[in-house]
Amino acid sequence: MGFKLLSKLLVYLTASIMAIASPLAFSVDSSGEYPTVSEIPVGEVRLYQIADGVWSHIATQSFDGAVYPSNGLIVRDGDELLLIDTAWGAKNTAALLAEIEKQIGLPVTRAVSTHFHDDRVGGVDVLRAAGVATYASPSTRRLAEVEGNEIPTHSLEGLSSSGDAVRFGPVELFYPGAAHSTDNLIVYVPSASVLYGGCAIYELSRTSAGNVADADLAEWPTSIERIQQHYPEAQFVIPGHGLPGGLDLLKHTTNVVKAHTNRSVVE
């Protein structure tokens, strides 16, 4: 069995187990497998329904001669939608809004960016022009300005110390501490036991640490421990890039980060 097929099978099995364990909360999309990078042309966006009122959005972007996937989250909030992270750029984010209108038909009224990198804030200006209120932590807003990236308009308070959590509509926002970046936030959907790890969490097929220019490698494993301790009931975990899975993604990420750190020390 090929690795790609095995990865998709694991996603399907995880979703099936969740649907059985929580039949009222989960209505997993039966329309197909989780979209992969090879299936999404740059400039297009796919939506994948995880649970009743919960979707991931998947886009792709060219970077350094390669094409990478990027995940975000959409959560229903009454007759409105909360968006977590842009679709990595203005063109993708405009396509995301169009796809949401086509498939869901509810307005996106608020959006949260989970850290300051372009795959999370690139497209904020498109959201703002569409009347979406954009939010991020003060740290993310400051770092985005320093980096020359787009800056969300509103500040999220109460997320300055490791372990801080605040309720934001249908989700809980959690600051686990520094990891992929010093400002990275985690998003949890309690009604569906869905954990969105953003770039602080890796997919299972990833074996290298990737972009760690703004990471705190020493603190990252401790931050992941905080996530595990705060959300032990999480059933569906979405990484910032690639295929979702279960809580095993947290341990896998820790292993990859520690291996990278150990290699760096040896070198």
Rank of each mutant, 00 (worst) to 15 (best):
P138V: 13
L159F: 11
L83K: 01
I238N: 01
I224E: 02
H154W: 14
V54L: 06
V212E: 13
P244L: 06
E39K: 10
L159I: 09
L10Y: 09
R167D: 09
R128L: 05
R128S: 12
P23V: 08
R110E: 08
E267N: 05
P176F: 00
L173M: 06
V28M: 09
Q103R: 11
T93K: 00
M18Q: 06
L204R: 10
Y231T: 01
D216N: 08
R141Y: 03
S70Y: 04
S30H: 13
R167P: 06
D29F: 08
P239Q: 01
D85G: 00
Y175G: 00
G43H: 10
L159G: 01
A218T: 13
V108S: 02
V108E: 02
F116L: 04
V75Q: 02
S30M: 14
T114N: 00
D52H: 06
A213T: 12
A136R: 03
A129W: 11
A165R: 13
A94T: 10
V265G: 13
G72Q: 00
S161T: 10
S22T: 13
V146T: 14
D85R: 00
I74W: 02
T254Y: 12
S137R: 13
S161C: 12
Y196H: 05
I224R: 01
P138D: 13
F168H: 03
L9H: 06
V257D: 00
F116S: 14
L47I: 08
S38D: 06
G169C: 04
E39N: 06
G169M: 02
L13P: 08
V166Y: 08
P232Q: 07
A179E: 03
A21H: 13
S31L: 08
V11W: 10
S223A: 08
E145F: 12
D125P: 04
E44G: 12
I227F: 04
D214L: 12
H115E: 00
T36P: 06
L5Q: 12
I224F: 03
L9K: 07
D79L: 15
S30F: 10
T114K: 02
E203A: 10
I100Y: 03
H154F: 11
A144E: 03
I227R: 02
T254I: 07
E225P: 02
A90L: 10
G240D: 04
T114M: 04
S155Q: 11
Q103K: 12
F174D: 00
Q229R: 13
T86N: 02
Y196D: 01
A215Y: 10
P107S: 12
G245L: 01
K8E: 09
D77P: 02
S113V: 14
L217R: 13
N184V: 01
I201L: 10
V171I: 09
N211T: 12
V194Q: 00
R142C: 14
V132C: 05
V75D: 03
Y48T: 07
A130M: 15
A21Y: 12
Q235S: 14
D119G: 02
L243M: 06
G148H: 09
S22K: 13
K4R: 05
P232R: 11
L217G: 05
G78K: 12
L204N: 10
P41K: 12
T134V: 12
R128H: 12
E39F: 10
P239K: 00
Y135Q: 01
A98E: 12
G245P: 00
G177N: 00
R167L: 07
V121P: 03
L249F: 03
R120K: 07
H180V: 00
T114S: 14
H117I: 01
A94L: 14
V121R: 03
S31D: 05
R46P: 03
L217I: 15
T222M: 08
D29E: 12
A213Q: 09
R142Q: 11
D164S: 13
T261F: 15
G242T: 03
I227G: 02
D216M: 10
V187S: 04
G245F: 00
S113P: 04
A98D: 06
D216K: 12
A234R: 02
S162W: 13
G65M: 13
Y68M: 06
E157I: 14
L24E: 08
S160I: 12
A129I: 06
W220E: 01
V124F: 04
L82C: 14
T93G: 00
G65R: 08
R110K: 08
N71G: 04
H57N: 03
A90C: 05
A129K: 11
R263Y: 08
L10K: 06
S38M: 13
S27N: 05
Y175L: 04
I186L: 08
V11E: 05
D79N: 07
S205C: 04
I40C: 07
A25E: 07
H57P: 02
L83W: 01
V194D: 01
L217M: 06
Y34P: 12
V266A: 10
G122S: 10
P221I: 14
V124H: 06
L82V: 13
D118L: 07
A213I: 08
E145M: 10
Q228W: 13
E80P: 04
W55C: 00
P244Y: 10
V146P: 05
L81N: 01
Q103G: 13
S27H: 06
S27T: 07
K251I: 05
S264R: 13
G245R: 03
L249M: 06
I50P: 04
I104C: 00
D52F: 10
I238F: 14
V126E: 10
V166T: 10
A234D: 01
M1R: 05
V212M: 06
I58Q: 07
A165G: 09
V37S: 08
N149G: 13
